[in-house]
Amino acid sequence: RGITCLDHENEKVNMYCVSDDQLICALCKLVGRHRDHQVASLNDR
């Protein structure tokens, strides 16, 4: 089922925000508060 995003409840987390040490979803990176932050794919970890 996967872990859902805290900010976007219908989205699954699939990225890690290095700047905030937090799991995020694609919407967080595209339009959310993490858009200018350094992120890594969970597949890279």
Rank of each mutant, 00 (worst) to 15 (best):
4 T>Q: 04
33 R>K: 13
21 D>E: 10
45 R>F: 15
1 R>T: 08
29 K>E: 10
1 R>D: 09
38 Q>K: 12
40 A>H: 04
8 H>F: 00
1 R>G: 10
27 L>A: 15
1 R>V: 06
7 D>M: 05
38 Q>F: 01
4 T>V: 05
14 N>P: 03
44 D>H: 07
2 G>C: 02
5 C>L: 00
30 L>K: 15
6 L>G: 12
37 H>Q: 03
25 C>V: 00
5 C>W: 01
1 R>E: 12
45 R>T: 10
33 R>Y: 09
42 L>G: 09
14 N>D: 07
6 L>M: 13
32 G>Q: 02
4 T>N: 11
16 Y>N: 05
41 S>L: 07
22 Q>N: 04
6 L>R: 14
37 H>Y: 02
12 K>M: 11
39 V>W: 05
30 L>E: 14
25 C>P: 03
15 M>A: 13
13 V>L: 09
29 K>C: 07
33 R>N: 08
9 E>V: 04
9 E>H: 09
12 K>H: 08
5 C>G: 02
12 K>L: 10
9 E>F: 14
34 H>G: 03
35 R>Y: 02
40 A>D: 12
20 D>K: 03
24 I>D: 08
15 M>F: 09
45 R>M: 06
41 S>V: 04
4 T>G: 05
4 T>E: 05
33 R>P: 12
29 K>N: 15
5 C>Q: 01
27 L>R: 15
15 M>K: 06
2 G>H: 02
7 D>V: 06
43 N>G: 11
38 Q>E: 14
41 S>P: 13
5 C>H: 01
21 D>A: 09
30 L>D: 15
32 G>S: 03
8 H>I: 00
33 R>W: 03
30 L>G: 14
4 T>A: 05
26 A>G: 14
8 H>G: 01
26 A>T: 09
33 R>I: 08
20 D>F: 00
38 Q>C: 07
13 V>P: 05
9 E>M: 12
41 S>K: 08
42 L>Q: 07
38 Q>S: 03
11 E>D: 10
28 C>G: 01
19 S>G: 11
16 Y>R: 15
18 V>G: 12
2 G>V: 05
19 S>W: 05
19 S>C: 08
19 S>Q: 14
34 H>C: 03
16 Y>C: 06
27 L>T: 07
16 Y>G: 12
7 D>Y: 08
10 N>K: 05
44 D>V: 05
31 V>K: 14
44 D>K: 06
31 V>E: 15
18 V>D: 13
41 S>I: 02
9 E>N: 13
10 N>T: 04
6 L>W: 05
21 D>K: 12
11 E>P: 00
42 L>S: 12
29 K>D: 05
16 Y>H: 08
38 Q>W: 03
26 A>S: 11
5 C>N: 02
36 D>T: 06
1 R>W: 02
31 V>R: 10
42 L>V: 11
2 G>P: 05
5 C>T: 02
24 I>M: 08
11 E>M: 06
28 C>Q: 02
26 A>I: 01
7 D>T: 05
2 G>I: 01
25 C>D: 00
17 C>M: 02
13 V>K: 04
3 I>R: 09
36 D>A: 04
43 N>D: 10
7 D>W: 04
20 D>A: 00
2 G>R: 10
18 V>A: 13
8 H>Y: 00
10 N>G: 06
36 D>Q: 05
36 D>K: 06
2 G>Q: 06
11 E>V: 02
34 H>W: 00
39 V>D: 04
19 S>L: 09
22 Q>A: 12
24 I>Q: 11
35 R>K: 12
16 Y>A: 13
42 L>D: 10
